[in-house]
Design a protein around this nucleic acid. Structure first.
Lengths: 166, 166
DNA sequence: TATTGTTATACTCTATAACTATA
DNA sequence: TATAGTTATAGAGTATAACAATA
C-alpha cells in the first residue's frame, strides 16, 4: 500500500543533512496499519470501507444513500455496490421512505449490533497490536504529536479526504 | 487512500473505554503523507514507485530487472512497464550485459543525476511540510516512537511489504 | 530445459453515463 | 424538469500466461 516515500539520506551524506525519514516512516507505518486492519476485519467478512459505512449508518439510522455519497465524496453507484454487500451480509436494510418514495432509508438489522460489537473488539485489538512496543505514557505522547499533525493538515475523523479511492 | 480504521469511541462511551484512535491517526496521516508525496513528485513527471526504482538503480547500477522484481516482490511485467517509463523520461538506460546477453543491465543517464538532486529537495520539503507544527525536539520524539513501532513490526526501509500494490 | 525480458490475454475495478421511478 | 437509486458501458489498471532470445 505504501510506496517508498522520502529517500533516506544517501550513504555518504553529511551529518548536517536534514534527517529525512519521519515522513517515510509515517507512510510506511500508515500503510501497514491500513492493511493490518483490513486483514482483521476480513475475518468478519468486511472491508474497511464497509466498516465505515456501517458506522455511519449506526450513528444516523434512516439516512439516504445519497447523503452517504455526498459526505464521503463517493460515487452513488459505488454506494449502491457497498450497500448491496452489507445487505447480502444481513447487516443493513433498505426501506422506502414514505415521505419521499425515491429515497432508500438505510437501517441496521438486529444482527448488525453483534457485528458492531465484534468490530469494536477488532479495533481495540488492532490499536493494542499496532502500539504494542509503547507504554501508556508513550502512547499518549504519540497521540498528541499525531493529533497536532492531523490538525495542521486539516485532517479530521470525518474522513472526507481520499475515501474515493477505496 | 486511507480507509476508515478503528472507530472512535461511540458518542455515549464510558470514560473507561480504551482510547481507540492512534491507529486510525496513523492510517489517516500515512495516507495523507503518501498522496502528498505523490503530488510533489508528479511535478517531476514521476510517481512514487518510479522514484523508488530510480533510487535502487542509483545505489547499484548495472543490476537486472529481475533482481528488482525479486527484491520489491513485483511482477516482472510490471518492472518492464516502469522501466519503460523511466527510459522514456531519459533517466534510465538498458544495455545488454555482455556476460549474459539475456539480462538488461540498468544504469542512470547523466540527466538522472539532476533529477535525483531535485528528488532530494522534494523529499526535504515534504518532510518539513509534513512535520511543520512540531519543533526539533518533538520531531526527534516522534521519530523515536515511530522507529520503535516500525522495528516491532519488522518494517525496514528495504520496502518489501506491500510494494506489489502500486 | 531453465531463465530474462517482453508481449498478449483475461480479469477486476472504477468511472461515466444512460435509465427508472418518483417528485 | 430535477433527484434518488440503479444498471450498463467503457476505460484503466493488474495479473496470468504465452512467447522469443539466450543460457
Amino acid at each position: 500500500m505504501a510506496p517508498p516515500d522520502a529517500a533516506p539520506p544517501p550513504a555518504g551524506a553529511s551529518a548536517q543533512a536534514p534527517r529525512a525519514g519521519v515522513a517515510f516512516l509515517l507512510t510506511q507505518i500508515g500503510g501497514y496499519a491500513a492493511s493490518h486492519f483490513a486483514e482483521r476485519v476480513a475475518e468478519l467478512d468486511l472491508t474497511p470501507p464497509l466498516t465505515g459505512l456501517l458506522r455511519l449508518i449506526a450513528m444516523t439510522p434512516g439516512r439516504s444513500q445519497q447523503s452517504l455519497a455526498t459526505e464521503l465524496d463517493m460515487l452513488p453507484s459505488k454506494v449502491v455496490s457497498l450497500i448491496d454487500q452489507l445487505e447480502a451480509l444481513g447487516l443493513v436494510q433498505r426501506s422506502r421512505d414514505p415521505r419521499d418514495r425515491r429515497v432508500h432509508a438505510l437501517s441496521l438489522t438486529p444482527a448488525a449490533n453483534q457485528t458492531l460489537d465484534q468490530l469494536r473488539q477488532v479495533a481495540t485489538a488492532h490499536e493494542r497490536e499496532m502500539l504494542a512496543p509503547l507504554d501508556d505514557a508513550e502512547k499518549d505522547q504519540l497521540a498528541g504529536l499525531l493529533q497536532r499533525i492531523a490538525d495542521h493538515h486539516h485532517l479530521h475523523p470525518g474522513i472526507h479526504p481520499g475515501y474515493r479511492n477505496l
